[in-house]
Simulated assay, not measured.
Amino acid sequence: MIRRFGEAVKPEQRYRRRPGAYAVLMREGQVLVTHQSEPNPEFQLPGGGIDPGESAIRALHREVYEETGWTISSARRIGAYRRFTFMPEYEIWAEKLCHIYLARPVLRRSAPTEPGHRDVWLSPEEALDLLANAGDRHFLLGVLRGN
């Protein structure tokens, strides 16, 4: 059974399954996150939806680059969680199936290419305080504790 974080499931609501790949990115004691300005300003683990026919690893590399401008290496899956939420940018209710990876940021090749995103380096304590969703915080805490 995959752990669930976030708001309660609304039994009357139909949800569209939306798999995604997200990364805990550590380098020199800092955490690389993305700040998304719209539709709701928030700090997040970089990542996003897996496109049809795309592997989770390929999506992870693409999404991290789009949201941070960084390339990554050594991606290793550390778990997954579910989150039921409304996605205003797509106007859908989604069952997000979030695959979480630990990876190493290697090289910043550009500014983020995804509109409304910026890359931000935070201390682990700041990241735990600022990450918008409990699932992201759970997996970052697990990495910090060596789990």
Rank of each mutant, 00 (worst) to 15 (best):
E7C: 12
P11S: 11
R16H: 15
P19M: 08
P19S: 09
G20F: 11
A21P: 12
V24E: 14
M26T: 13
R27D: 07
G29K: 07
L32F: 03
V33P: 08
T34C: 03
H35I: 05
H35G: 03
H35K: 06
Q36S: 14
E38N: 06
P41C: 03
P41A: 05
E42W: 02
Q44S: 10
L45D: 11
L45I: 12
P46S: 09
G47S: 13
G49I: 14
G53K: 07
E54T: 03
S55Q: 07
S55H: 04
A56V: 08
R62M: 13
V64L: 10
E66P: 04
T68R: 02
W70Q: 00
T71Q: 01
S73P: 01
R76F: 04
R76N: 05
I78W: 08
R82V: 15
F86R: 14
M87H: 13
Y90M: 06
Y90E: 10
I92T: 11
W93D: 09
L97P: 05
I100Q: 13
L102V: 14
P105I: 06
V106A: 07
A111Q: 00
T113E: 00
T113P: 00
E114D: 01
R118C: 07
R118H: 04
D119R: 07
V120M: 08
L122G: 07
A127N: 06
L128D: 04
L128P: 05
D129H: 10
L130E: 03
L130F: 02
A132C: 01
A132H: 02
A132M: 02
